[in-house]
Simulated assay, not measured.
Amino acid sequence: MDPKVVCETDRLVVRDWVDTDEDRVFDIYRRWEVSRWLGAEPRVMADRGAAAKVIERWNARNQDPTYGVWAVEERSTGTVAGTVLLVPLPQPSDGTASKGEIEVGWRFHPDAWGRGLATEAARGAIAHGFKAGLGEIYAVVRPDNAASLAVCRRLGMRSIGRTNRWYSAELEAFLL
């Protein structure tokens, strides 16, 4: 069975994950240069078995047609370059009620860096979200992650300052 395609761009197909993506997921998330930017306590993926579990978890999230954590496949090679996500932000760490805030995010293999793929994939995910009726979309980035800060600017997102509202970490927040 072919994976569900969420959106397509000139160079990319954004789709659900398949079992054959496990090696690539492990290769992406085992790298400190990728994982150092993720979560309140960043850590690398420990083993290939974890990749199978995370793919299963991501595909379970992809059941809602608006939200998901998707594979970003390069059309020209069929290689998974990374991940793009459009998901509800977690309950705010400041104890206030969540307002249905939605986040766009991206995580790419270093061999895909510097080619505009993160921007292109995020643009596709954002268009998907707005088409589904979302009114606004956030991005949250570690303040020292220059590459992701640049992606936010290329997407036309407006900086709304630093916050520790989500993920129990100080992050630079952007809004579109």
Rank of each mutant, 00 (worst) to 15 (best):
I28K: 01
R30N: 14
W32L: 05
W32M: 02
W32D: 11
S35R: 09
S35Q: 09
L38W: 01
E41Y: 09
E41I: 09
P42Q: 02
P42S: 00
P42C: 00
P42R: 00
V44G: 05
V44C: 13
M45L: 14
A46G: 11
A46K: 09
D47I: 08
D47Q: 13
D47K: 12
R48E: 14
R48I: 15
G49P: 10
A51L: 14
A51N: 07
A52H: 15
A52P: 12
V54Y: 07
V54D: 10
E56L: 13
W58V: 12
W58N: 13
W58S: 10
W58Y: 15
W58A: 12
W58T: 12
N59W: 07
N59S: 07
A60W: 07
N62G: 12
D64F: 03
D64P: 04
P65H: 10
G68S: 12
G68A: 13
A71S: 14
A71Q: 09
A71P: 08
V72C: 06
V72A: 09
V72P: 02
E74D: 03
S76Q: 12
T77Q: 11
G78W: 02
G78C: 08
T79W: 15
A81E: 01
A81H: 00
G82Q: 03
G82Y: 07
G82C: 06
T83S: 13
T83C: 08
T83Q: 10
L85I: 06
L86E: 12
L86F: 12
V87P: 07
V87C: 11
L89R: 00
L89Q: 00
S93I: 00
S93C: 07
S93L: 03
G95S: 05
G95E: 07
T96M: 00
T96N: 01
A97G: 11
A97I: 00
A97Q: 13
A97H: 06
S98K: 08
S98W: 07
K99H: 08
G100W: 02
G100Y: 04
G100F: 03
E101K: 10
E101Y: 09
E103A: 08
E103M: 03
G105F: 01
W106M: 14
W106Y: 15
F108T: 06
F108D: 00
H109F: 10
H109W: 07
H109P: 02
W113P: 12
G114R: 05
G114D: 09
R115W: 03
R115T: 03
G116L: 11
G116P: 10
G116A: 14
L117A: 03
L117T: 05
A118C: 11
A118Q: 03
T119L: 14
A121R: 06
A121P: 06
A121Y: 05
A121F: 03
A122L: 03
R123Q: 07
R123M: 01
G124L: 03
A125K: 02
I126W: 01
H128D: 06
H128F: 05
G129D: 13
F130D: 04
K131E: 15
G133R: 10
L134Q: 14
I137M: 13
Y138G: 11
Y138W: 15
Y138H: 15
A139F: 11
A139N: 12
V140L: 12
D144L: 11
D144Q: 13
N145R: 10
N145P: 09
A146C: 04
A146V: 11
S148H: 06
S148V: 05
S148A: 10
L149M: 05
A150I: 02
R154D: 06
G156N: 03
G156K: 02
G156F: 06
M157W: 01
I160T: 03
G161M: 01
G161P: 01
R162A: 09
